[in-house]
Design a protein around this nucleic acid. Structure first.
Lengths: 258, 258
DNA sequence: CTGCGAAGTTGAACGTGTTCGACATCGCGG
DNA sequence: CCGCGATGTCGAACACGTTCAACTTCGCAG
């Protein structure tokens, strides 16, 4: 772990030799289509990519994100540092996979609740709890994830184009939560609501990240307390007296969406 | 900017010599009370600290946060890198000062509105707009500020103990906004509301950070759209029918506060 | 079989934030 | 006026994320 920057010789002229390498030639400047973070084109590539990803995930969980070095990931996976960057353009991009995996597991956990319940409130409550159940084990290291997520320019931001597939899948889950329920929703609200519910879910996760209570009990309390409110609010939105307000809110939301 | 890591000699045995240094002795292990980021004890110290801070702020605004090197700050200020770390324990801590300065200016800008208006809605609206006015010129570099602010463990988090003075001052501003108004508020809500308004302000800033519209027009729209809603909601909270709901919400909030 | 280009792999080098042990300066009691 | 401890200052050294040009491996067209 020492003497990594101590090197009297300016350019060592050749490359080192670790794994068996005996050939000679080859074209020099050949770069893959996407510079960094490319999908592998061969079976071997896919294997290496998965190996690096699994190793990284394991170390992240074992030591935490900040304590896990790219060098450690590479060493543990038995590859060179540069190789990791061939498949993942940055350390943060390794987390993107975690993000996606989390989404898949969230939907799997939510499925049983959605099959069982028909009323909106218990469905929503179940889906939100399923979300916390899913990310639960990764509480400490998820903080890092949300830190970069808060940065607007980051590709990891939940609002970024790069996160679009994961985001859309998550919104679709809330769409099913709503549309599969017996709840009667104002037609004007109907199309916007899934995204709003997803936004509320983001809020819950944001709270969860800051939640230091044992077993994240407070986040559970937040869900249990907020779901009835949302449920009531959705019901109220159909009242004739509140129509103007509903319309105002919807107009504002449409303006704000970027 | 090159050859910073090229150094054949392992340990140069002595320190370098830049500014006039001619003496000899002195105790070796003397460390200040707080390891990194200590308040200066002498006038000279205060001067150096301010110099470093001003230089850093200038460079942050000129080149942006990420593009501003600690080495650049030190060089521009005419001091050594280590000297900067004597007064500020990290690069991020330099932003803490920006945070505090922003709070002071926010209150100054808000004062005129608070002196003029008596109804809650225009007061709140004015204070929120004043906040965006204050932070407006730093839009790009404020993103970085909010990125670290989202991390729960960061001392820069608005919820952290280290941010307590700035946070309390900000909450006090919203207390004045509310209590100085003619609005009649549910007594139970009265004590909690300033903090809730501050929370709403955080939400506005969070939106602002992501707001890429020219002159942050959408954030302005958000404020103008949300203030009447908050105003109405506060008024409604006094209705007898809604008392149970109000009480539920307050109970939830008290539970969630950490 | 041969060679050639694409895909995959390597590790030294770079730039950056941060640490640390040595040194400098200053005020003050003796 | 001397020395001594607290405060301030220095910059090389360190660890880490990231880049890059060289090199290897592999599949396949000829």
């Amino acid at each position: 772990m020492r003497a990594m920057t101590d090197r009297p010789v300016p350019p060592p002229a050749g490359s080192g030799g670790a794994a068996e390498q005996t050939g000679v030639g080859g074209a020099a400047g050949a770069r893959p289509t996407e510079p960094g973070g490319a999908e592998p084109a061969t079976a071997r590539g896919e294997q290496t990519r998965q190996l690096i990803l699994d190793t990284a995930m394991r170390l992240f969980r074992e030591r935490g994100y900040a304590q896990t070095t790219m060098r450690a990931v590479a060493k543990e996976a038995g590859v060179a540092v540069g190789n990791a960057y061939y498949y993942f353009s940055s350390k943060e991009h390794l987390i993107q996979e975690f993000y996606a995996e989390t989404g898949v597991e969230h939907r799997a956990r939510a499925a049983s609740v959605l099959a069982r319940e028909t009323a909106l409130a218990p469905r929503l409550r179940g889906v939100l709890h399923a979300g916390i159940d899913t990310v639960g084990p990764s509480h400490e290291f998820a903080a890092m994830f949300f830190k970069t997520a808060a940065e607007p320019t980051s590709p990891l931001s939940p609002f970024s184009a790069e996160s679009s597939p994961t985001r859309e899948a998550s919104i679709a889950l809330f769409r099913e939560t709503l549309f599969g329920s017996t709840a009667k929703v104002d037609p004007e609200l109907r199309d916007e609501l899934p995204e709003l519910l997803w936004l509320a879910y983001l809020g819950v996760v944001l709270y969860w990240v800051h939640d230091r209570s044992p077993d994240q009990a407070k986040t559970r309390a937040l869900i249990d307390g907020v779901v009835p409110l949302i449920d009531k609010l959705i019901g109220l939105s159909r009242l004739r007296v509140l129509r103007p307000v509903t319309r105002d809110v919807l107009g504002l939301i449409r303006t704000l969406r970027q």
